[in-house]
Design a protein around this nucleic acid. Structure first.
Lengths: 173, 173
DNA sequence: CTAATATGAATGAAAG
DNA sequence: CTTTCATTCATATTAG
């Protein structure tokens, strides 16, 4: 029950996207088919297709996959931690019947098969293409202070400023 | 109010930086003023100034700008392709900060007036508000990138035989 | 109606 | 710079 077919016709509160059952079905199917992180182009295509069933934007698809994947993982992680003692085993995955009925196997596998085939050919470069500029990475490294458990940082000990006044360069604000 | 008193006030869990509203405001203002990729020195200064409002590290500032910039771009990219399906109007569906009170970032969500490519000067000098007309560069880069990358798009799951290049695998609908 | 839960949205952090 | 991950916030939905 509780058909929440909102997005398309009913009085949809414009607060946030409310996927229709059809949209959710498609998204779920795609996910089950192995799609986990659609590219921008794919997101747009999917969104376009789903718009038939109701209002939807690219970002909705983007978030959907992001959330779905994250929660799947989160749940799995919970199970890992939730299984503190698993004494003996308790496997119930003995079903060996699936092989004929559905055509599941056709697209089931797609995971990261790590096709590290053509990685990096020994390009043998005489000179480095770029002279390591102080990229963001470097900056980050530089900023990498010690955030360890806040370790008694003497913060705010100096002369209590009463008002910051952001003299930085916000003067013009 | 349900103001969660982030970073600056109550029990700040040292999990990750939780910017105060003031910090966010300043950062946002700087961004809007055109600052996009602050230099190491600028980051230090900003961080120093913002520390008045609460705990903050340089890397937080670094990450903030990096994320903000990336998301602004991503958002824009998406809006471009997203079609306002809803007949009539499609705006004003997002921001209803009526009661929230909380949630920093009034950078609004999506409906954003064509915010003009601002000055986008990479470093934003301190005082010298010298000439700065680089508005077009950004735009150009934007358009140029329009038809780029879209090359990949090949996560075909399984043998995928006769499938036009367009309909992703939504054919099973 | 209120509490609990499911899930859309946002964003800090970091990897690539 | 781009993309992904983890966590958190906010709200729609459902349970009690």
């Amino acid at each position: 029950m509780s058909v929440r077919a909102r997005g398309g016709g009913g009085g949809t509160k414009c607060g946030r996207w409310n996927p229709t059952t059809e949209q959710v079905k498609v998204l779920t199917d795609l996910f089950r088919a192995g799609l986990r992180t659609p590219s921008t182009d794919e997101i747009q295509k999917i969104s376009s297709q789903l718009s038939f069933y109701g209002k939807i934007e690219s970002k909705n698809v983007f978030y959907w996959f992001q959330n779905h994947k994250a929660r799947e993982r989160q749940k799995r992680r919970r199970i890992f931690v939730d299984e503190p003692k698993a004494e003996g085993f308790h496997f119930s995955c003995q079903d060996n019947n699936i092989t004929s009925t559905k055509h599941f196997s056709e697209i089931s596998n797609f995971n990261q098969v790590v096709e590290q085939s053509e990685k990096v050919k020994e390009t043998l470069q005489l000179f480095p293409p770029n002279s390591l500029n102080e990229s963001e990475s470097e900056k980050l490294r530089f900023f990498a202070e010690d955030c360890k458990e806040n370790a008694a940082f003497s913060y705010n000990i100096g002369p209590e400023k009463d008002h910051p006044t952001l003299d930085l360069r916000l003067s013009f604000l």
